[in-house]
Design a binder for these strands. Structure first.
Lengths: 162, 162
DNA sequence: ATAGTCATGTAATGAGTTACATGATTGC
DNA sequence: GCAATCATGTAACTCATTACATGACTAT
């Protein structure tokens, strides 16, 4: 994030809350600790100080190189853990009704998430709050993923009779 | 897993490697540590000992209750972290070519995963290696998810020209 | 004055990984 | 005899969360 311009921990925290939370949540505590670690490692530096102890960080050349490395050479995790799917494996341990409730709950959740993302896209399309091209790509992924999950969960719940 | 019958850490490890790895990977080290922790907490007990120090564990009533609680009352994590999508947010930091390569790489990976899962389903359908109903539901999720990801990544790569 | 927000940090704990370490049994 | 596999464990370290802790500035 600092590659896109200097910011303080507090600034970054807002970005996490507002837009990044859907793909990579981070807590306040982690953020401040990590900024200090990055600074120790020389990947970022304090470029300005402000009121209330505010420290504005900027990315260093080493940091930019590390980012570039991460983006182009480090392989993304292909099979992230899913506790949602893990539960599916063990649905045999509860009653059929409870298992179906679980799946229908996932369907509802996915539908809600889809609605919420649709709202975000609508606002972005109207241009009030402009989203970067890449933000839009991620958003579209979210829309497709939530739609797929709802379809699947409804289908799966249906399979459970018998 | 122990709710479905007693097993040793070694047995469980095989299950992780063969079928569970796609939704919840775990290492050998974690498994043995966790079994001891679960035993200390009274959620599982050693029900038999075998050659080479083998310890077969079984689930206790408390364990069954905990499982049931987790399945029906603990809310699944709705927004798991995705380093794959996180990278998308920062694709502006590399060249257009590199960004497109990234997305096409994801498309290829998704296609490969889809192929692999198709193979699993084929074998399961032929009945040689029977999969539980719930395993099939999870498998179907994987097929839909990988198909969706490929579509999205190709679409996104296409959007990157301009 | 005081509520709200800006702003940063630490401590305890839990979860997970990698690497190390050891040894028994079985099948050929 | 020996290779493969069965079988379990510990130590060091990293990552992440929750809770605690503190205080400055700003607008009304």
């Amino acid at each position: 994030m600092l590659a896109q311009g200097p910011a303080s921990g507090y600034d970054l925290l807002k970005v996490f809350e507002l837009s990044l939370a859907n793909v990579w949540a981070a807590t306040q505590s982690q953020l401040y600790t990590e900024l200090n670690r990055l600074a120790d490692a020389g990947l970022v530096t304090v470029v300005a100080e402000g009121p209330r102890g505010r420290k504005e960080y900027g990315i260093s050349e080493a940091g930019r190189e590390e980012l570039r490395h991460w983006l182009t050479e480090v392989k993304p995790n292909a099979t992230p853990r899913s506790d949602m799917l893990l539960r599916v494996f063990f649905l045999g341990e509860v009653s059929e009704d409870e298992a179906r409730d679980y799946l229908l709950g996932r369907a509802r959740e996915a539908a809600e998430a889809h609605e919420r993302l649709s709202g975000v896209r609508k606002i972005a399309d109207e241009g009030y709050e402009s989203l970067s091209l890449h933000g839009r790509l991620a958003l579209e992924y979210g829309l497709r993923a939530t739609a797929m999950q709802k379809e699947w969960a409804d289908w799966a719940a249906d399979r459970l009779r018998g």
